[in-house]
Design a protein around this nucleic acid. Structure first.
Length: 323
RNA sequence: GGCUGGGUAGCUCAGUUGGUAGAGCAGGGGACUGAAAAUCCCUGUGUCGGGGGUUCGACUCCCUCCCCAGCCA
């Protein structure tokens, strides 16, 4: 049984030029772009997430502005809605163009990733967080080791966030270790053609610096002020986003605006490194340089259109290490 | 021109009574199934400004030159 598809995915580190490439590819395919980004889902978070402005979009941009910042989103919710969106496009006979840098969300959508069904968060999580404060990370990890030694072995004691998650799963009668597959062993859910944008580190960092400066020029501070009125400070997910967190600190007088700008750049660089690390361990990704946009567009487009939706077997066709 | 401080890892600096160097930050690498732009782990050799000398041995002492900062002319 062949997988649904095909679909195209453009991935890569932040500020590498994914959005433009994806938009152009979607234009060529008469399709839409599906954003794979944990922060662009939030309504009102625009300049800080580098969301392509409406009037610059050649094709519809989906999976952005789907919730208010007061909502604490999750990978599972993203999986559900994004798959619905993708399936609708496929049903219309077009090739969806996914685009984004949130590795977990990408894999949650295009791979067979199953989340436990129980509820999340709420009082139980608060309970564990209080426990963490009271006993410390090592003791909490020891508690996990007592209840679920297999999972405890997979999680570093200091990674309290994941320790808590594993304890929650244990409460649901599940084990983190059972669901854990690592990045390598994932089964595809869709027939996805994944392209990664590659560029020199120096050039990437220059682009990041430029982008951050542009965000300030385009009203990042005003955007944050506006969102504060909507409760940004109280939200744990939205308020920790790069750019938002630091401007919030600046508004609180903990940083000067210039310091905030530097911290944002540094944090973005590190984020980019994590993205590269995540995507470079997926063997399906074919890396391309986007120096020549036209060439990149036709490379991606030709690859799907030459085969047609039928010939979509998920085989490793000699993986072009494109130019 | 004279005096006084300084010149040690990309940056800021430590370096004990002479035994060929070490922190913070930056940077690099990695993990990853419900917060993921999050969370967590690993990672520090550089002509100790140049040259000469003393010494078994000098980043550490002496001489000299170069550079920087401040003060005095």
């Amino acid at each position: 049984m062949s997988l649904p598809g095909p679909l195209v995915a453009i991935v890569g580190p932040t500020a590498s030029g994914k959005s433009e490439l994806a938009d152009r590819v979607a234009q060529a395919l008469g399709s839409s772009v599906v954003s794979i980004d944990a922060m662009q889902v939030y309504r009102g978070m625009d300049v800080g997430t580098a969301k392509t402005p409406v009037d610059e979009r050649r094709r519809p941009l989906l999976m952005v502005d789907v919730v208010d910042i007061t909502c604490d989103y999750s990978a599972q919710r993203f999986q559900q809605t994004a798959r619905q969106v993708i399936d609708d496009l496929l049903a219309d006979g077009v090739t969806p163009v996914l685009c984004g840098g949130t590795g977990l969300y990408l894999n949650a959508v295009i791979d067979d990733m199953r989340f436990p069904s129980g509820a999340i968060g709420g009082t139980r999580r608060r309970h564990y967080e209080q426990l963490l404060d009271a006993m410390g990370a090592d003791a909490l990890h020891a508690e996990l080791a007592r209840r679920d030694p297999q999972s405890a072995r997979l999680i570093h004691p200091h990674n309290a966030r994941r320790v808590i998650r594993a304890l929650e799963m244990q409460d649901e009668g599940r084990s983190y270790a059972q669901h854990h597959q690592g990045l390598h062993a994932r089964r595809p859910w869709y027939d996805a053609r994944i392209w990664g944008i590659e560029l020199d580190r120096d050039e990437l960092y220059r682009r990041i610096d430029r982008r951050v400066d542009e965000m300030f020029a385009h009203g990042l501070v005003e955007e944050v002020e506006r969102l504060v009125g909507q409760g940004l400070r109280e939200r744990r997910t939205a308020s920790q986003a790069i750019g938002y967190k630091e401007v919030l600190q600046a508004l609180d007088g903990e940083l000067t605006l210039d310091e905030a700008r530097e911290v944002i750049k540094r944090r973005t660089r590190r984020y980019a490194k994590r993205q590269i690390s995540w995507f470079s361990h997926d063997e399906r990704v074919r890396w391309i340089r986007a120096d020549d946009l036209e060439r990149a567009v036709s490379l991606v487009v030709d690859e799907v259109s030459s085969e047609g939706p039928e010939a979509s077997k998920d085989e490793d066709d000699g993986t072009v290490q494109a130019f």
